[in-house]
């Protein structure tokens, strides 16, 4: 077993675009669920809108890359409004089912042959990188050390992603300690009490849904920056992974999503090499390498169950700020 390779591969995931993208999207989920108490299980749909909004704007309409991001944001604002209108008045578990269904509708439409001209159906989109790469401020070269060695483009994707993540974190931090944030948290704790104070609960919930959705969209953009947009990525499983990350880190915390995403991806990356190499060396009771690769997804499911049962506030969370009392 090549421990050097396993550890280097694991460490590389500390700064992978996926890690950053999942963290950004999970910050959005934290706004939805951790602060607003909204059970959004359609974050994959918001991410898909970001990724496709970005890619289609560039490929089909020749817009600049930063306009592509704005188009993605616009699409997800509209999606949040359409989605929130019927569902925000409903009980929490209805909202969960409705959002997961809406996200699937988005994915199926992107994947369908009907819009092949724009979406390239199941094959997905690629080759929209020119604009983003041209905006790269880093000169050509090799940067970094150890497992974190990048060329100027890889560096630019990471720097852009991390900057975006920091902006999102600061924004959410500022918002949640503002009067607006206190109302939102009040709605999470007791909707009727906030309504009795004369606040328009529906409107606040809608703003929360839009804000979290836009963060999900930015996550989708970052996910699509390095290579391609493939519809099969935006399955409900993606949302479930984000939920695992959120609950692992702590739902009602600023840094929980970042910590959760790092732990999630480091463990996944470690196991993706460790388990198959164990299997090859016959240390896993004769199971094959492919089966060993599947094992880690079983672990994600088990981990999600265990966190919700035994530590629902997550690693960084405070038990007093527990958001599962919604009925």
């Amino acid at each position: 077993m090549d421990w050097g390779f396993i550890l280097a591969n694991t460490a590389a995931w500390l700064l992978m675009p996926e890690t950053i993208a999942y963290a950004i999207a999970t910050v959005g989920l934290a706004v939805h669920f951790g602060y607003g108490g909204l059970l959004n299980f359609g974050q994959a749909g918001f991410m898909a809108l970001g990724a496709y909004g970005y890619a289609i704007s560039i490929l089909s309409f020749g817009l600049p890359w930063w306009v592509g991001i704005l188009v993605g944001i616009g699409a997800s604002v509209i999606f949040a409004l359409i989605l929130g209108l019927p569902t925000l008045r409903l009980r929490a578990d209805y909202l969960a089912i409705a959002t997961i269904a809406a996200a699937e509708v988005v994915r199926l439409l992107f994947q369908s042959v009907i819009f092949d001209e724009y979406t390239n159906s199941a094959d997905g989109l690629g080759g929209y990188h020119a604009g983003f790469r041209a905006a790269n401020p880093f000169p050509e070269g090799v940067y970094g050390f150890g497992p974190w060695v990048y060329n100027e483009q890889e560096l630019w994707v990471r720097v852009f992603g991390i900057s975006l993540l920091v902006v999102c974190l600061v924004l959410v931090w500022l918002l949640m300690r503002s009067p607006w944030g206190r109302v939102v948290k009040g709605i999470r704790e007791d909707e009727d009490a906030v309504r009795a104070l004369g606040k328009n609960v529906f409107s606040y919930k809608m703003q929360v849904l839009v804000l979290g959705g836009v963060l999900g969209t930015l996550g989708g953009v970052v996910l699509s920056l390095p290579s391609a947009v493939v519809p099969a990525v935006y399955l409900p499983s993606l949302t479930f992974f984000l939920w695992t990350i959120l609950l692992l880190g702590g739902a009602a915390t600023i840094l929980g999503p970042v910590v959760g995403s790092l732990i999630f991806w480091l463990i996944m990356a470690f196991l993706s090499v460790f388990l198959p190499s164990m299997a090859e060396n016959g240390m896993l009771f004769g199971i094959s390498g492919i089966q060993a690769g599947v094992l880690r997804y079983i672990l994600v499911g088990v981990a999600l169950m265990l966190i919700v049962i035994f530590r629902p506030q997550g690693i960084l969370g405070n038990k007093k700020e527990l958001t599962f009392n919604a009925r």
């Binding site: 929490a92 499983s237 609950l247 599947v294 997804y297 088990v302 629902p312």
Partner: peptide, 18 residues
């Protein structure tokens, strides 16, 4: 709570599928 139970069932579903 029912919300926790629902998320547990999602975890179970994910695990069993794999």
């Amino acid at each position: 709570s029912v919300v926790q139970l629902m998320i547990v069932s999602i975890g179970l579903s994910l695990g069993l599928r794999y």
